[in-house]
Design a binder for these strands. Sequence first.
DNA 1: ATTCATCGGTTCATTATTTACACCGACGTT
DNA 2: AACGTCGGTGTAAATAATGAACCGATGAAT
Lengths: 257, 257
Amino acid sequence: MRTVEKALRLLDYYDGQNPEFGLSDLARLSGIDKATVLRMLGDMAATGLVDQDPESRKWRLGAGILRLARLREAAFPVTRVLTPILERLAAETGETAHASLISGRHLGTVGIVESTRSNRVSLEPGQMLPLHATASGLAYGAFARPELRAQLLAAPLPAATATTPTDPHRLAELLDQAARRGYAVADQTYEDEVFGIAMPIFGPDGFATGALAVATPISRMTDTHTAAILAALAPAAREATLGLGGRFPPTQRPAAD
Amino acid sequence: MRTVEKALRLLDYYDGQNPEFGLSDLARLSGIDKATVLRMLGDMAATGLVDQDPESRKWRLGAGILRLARLREAAFPVTRVLTPILERLAAETGETAHASLISGRHLGTVGIVESTRSNRVSLEPGQMLPLHATASGLAYGAFARPELRAQLLAAPLPAATATTPTDPHRLAELLDQAARRGYAVADQTYEDEVFGIAMPIFGPDGFATGALAVATPISRMTDTHTAAILAALAPAAREATLGLGGRFPPTQRPAAD
DNA sequence: ATTCATCGGTTCATTATTTACACCGACGTT
DNA sequence: AACGTCGGTGTAAATAATGAACCGATGAAT
């Protein structure tokens, strides 16, 4: 496989729970030889993408990322646009709202605003969301470039919970349903007790680039609550698309207001 | 040379002025074959580090960076700590203040607060600062891990302006001076008309991890102004070090307050 | 105390991946 | 119509990645 991609995939293991890894940890997780991992980490450290704690010798995300993030935000102010939208969405629904953008083969969470209720869904910052097992992923997949659908259905569909769709036919149904409705739901397909509702965020080409989602504890789900969430989600997703310079595909063009 | 590093160095060409590149641009800049660059970009796109505008086919920084930046900030809140310090420093000095952290072989700018005066130094967000030609670089180099000094003196020292130190002996003098004084100055060594004053930000190991700097138009430089800037810079740099969990080396321990 | 496992890291022969060159069609200028 | 440039592809040659064995250090278990 391509070395550069393998090296960068090492970064996928980092999340809010695991901000640093030892050399052997990463070798074990990735299945790559230690010597190779070490060289990859060395290369990434040389460009500031990771750095090594001189004491514990563990490898962390590096300062170079901040520089890149600043540039990305300057050229394309995603966070600045999404944050207020998420805050409003969380306030209106009383539930945790989050936004994610496509990042390789997964959706990368780029913004989270948690519900203020004590019983709420809590999400890891920076989590990678699988496309087949989350409402965000389905909403994205249903409106992504057509090639993606085939790739998605052909790829392995690991089960995260008992209700994760692992059968390609089932997944195809869910994608079709999301495409028809304009939104996707996920009933505990990724985390037990969590129900997700998501709508796509469209890019300038009229295909999805990410998703905006509301996650609620399963205990609170009722039809009226779902309806309320959708009522708040639709304008928020629309605003997110417009705020990021996206355009709606003809089939999904919302009513002008 | 190592492929991973070469691939990641492509990202160094991005800055505030150049938020996107065509395939051939990057091949030309890097001196790498187009085919190779394309594969590298493909690998980086697969992990979300870059993405390609589907229309113009140009390559931009990707959404995956935001995820990583969030994680980095969560584990190690650099920006949150530095921003208020920079704001205060800019207000007190009336000049542009910026902070940078080591990122591979350069300092990566991670925060800038510009002076409010109309005649001010204006900096590119995300700029990469060479160690030998900037006050920040000298301040960093004078207090970095000892190995760095030899590397720095051995590396090529490209001239950015007429007064850039290009002679290793001269650079060694400047580093010694900075080490003695605890701060570094740069009189138009990187940009004409710009005078920089910088102090190191120390990491947990007592070596520099970055620098805090004030940049002023040469026309405004006087001894009293320099003294005023230093008076504001010293506590700011101290605060930055402490705020990032750093520790001072014995020789640089500031007086307790 | 001694063993044992695991850690981070290095070395080196083998091999598989990267590389560069030529080439492609498409687009814009001259 | 000729030319230059663009993004991208195929291929043979060669370079760079690879992984097993090994090292010293550290820490836990016996």
